[in-house]
């Protein structure tokens, strides 16, 4: 059992930020708990004290403001997966949330926690970086907005300061008519940590792809966009030939990133499979994931 010398359950964000500011880095924020709690129980993670964010109002909400979607950082994967707004405007994120863990984990785990935990395989993070999502970080000194991709700086590492809390994630809705999708490759359907995940957004104008975003997770230390793969789609007409061309480009990229790592042989082959599956679904099914 973790030996906690302090445990706070503030009712307001200001109190939470004051506690973090005063503690000099000793207190850690606690969101859903699904990663931190078992890690502490097994002694893999030590924390002197926790600031439990579960009673904070206003950071568990999904809203839309103009063409921007805002998601409170304590919104659970279940809330994201079932949100009509997210399904309509950013289906890739709803699909990514649905791919996390198990029903029990999705009912607890939060999107803010998924970012702060900085796992290379974090499912919703792959969708978020593909959307160019930003995280809002609050501290007593004020707030800042940072691209999720810039907040992550290695496996398990972020640029979040000890006195800061992620309070909101926001992103622009992809251009009208865009198609979006997410695919995860795990050892089995439920509860598997992604061996790899892929998110795609694209828009077709006059039969050619005019807008493309591609994000891959569990390849590098953190999920990120792959501009080379985006460029391989831009200006092209959706077709079976393009799917094959994209799959080969994806294989080349993954080979380049992974080099001689032991997982490279498997992942270079596997990425072609998920690339084909996702693009085929998005190219062929006209109703799938349209914004």
């Amino acid at each position: 059992m973790p030996d906690l010398s302090e445990y706070y359950q503030p009712q307001s964000l200001t109190t939470a930020l004051e506690l973090l500011a005063k503690s000099g880095g000793k207190l850690r924020p606690l969101a859903g708990g699904t990663d931190i709690v078992p890690a502490m129980s097994k002694g893999e993670l030590k924390a002197d004290g926790l600031v439990d964010l579960s009673k904070l109002p206003d950071i568990q909400r999904i809203s839309v403001d103009g063409n921007e979607v805002k998601i409170g950082s304590l919104t659970t994967f279940t809330q994201i997966e079932t949100s009509p707004l997210i399904r309509a405007k950013a289906s890739l994120l709803a699909e990514a949330a649905a791919a996390v863990g198990s029903p029990q984990i999705r009912n607890l785990g939060t999107i803010g926690g998924n970012i702060a935990n900085a796992s290379p395989a974090a499912d919703t993070v792959t969708a978020l970086v593909t959307l160019d999502a930003k995280a809002r970080l609050d501290s007593l000194k004020g707030s800042r907005r940072v691209l999720v991709s810039e907040l992550l700086c290695g496996a398990g590492k972020t640029n979040i300061h000890p006195q800061e809390i992620i309070t909101e994630i926001n992103f622009k809705i992809p251009p009208p008519g865009s198609k979006t999708g997410f695919i995860k490759l795990g050892r089995r359907k439920a509860l598997a940590i992604a061996r790899m995940n892929l998110a795609i957004i694209f828009n077709v104008k006059e039969e050619r792809i005019s807008f493309a975003r591609v994000g891959l997770g569990a390849v590098g230390p953190n999920p990120r966009r792959y501009v080379v793969l985006e460029n391989s789609l831009l200006g092209q007409t959706p077709s079976e030939v393009l799917i094959e061309k994209f799959a080969i480009e994806a294989e080349c990229e993954v080979t380049r990133v992974l080099g001689s790592r032991p997982s490279a042989v498997y992942k270079c082959e596997a990425v072609k499979g998920i690339a084909r599956d996702l693009l085929t679904k998005l190219f062929l099914d006209s109703g799938q994931g349209v914004v």
């Binding site: 708990g33 709690v37 129980s41 926790l50 439990d52 029990q104 984990i105």
Partner: peptide, 29 residues
């Protein structure tokens, strides 16, 4: 003890959760 098996599942406010993945204070109220 890490959310893989579901043997510790309980219902928390109408939702199924793994009781090994949360601290008891998170169930306060």
């Amino acid at each position: 003890g890490e959310g893989e098996c579901g043997a510790c599942s309980v219902i928390l406010d109408d939702e199924l959760v793994d009781s090994c993945l949360i601290l008891a204070p998170q169930a306060h109220g």
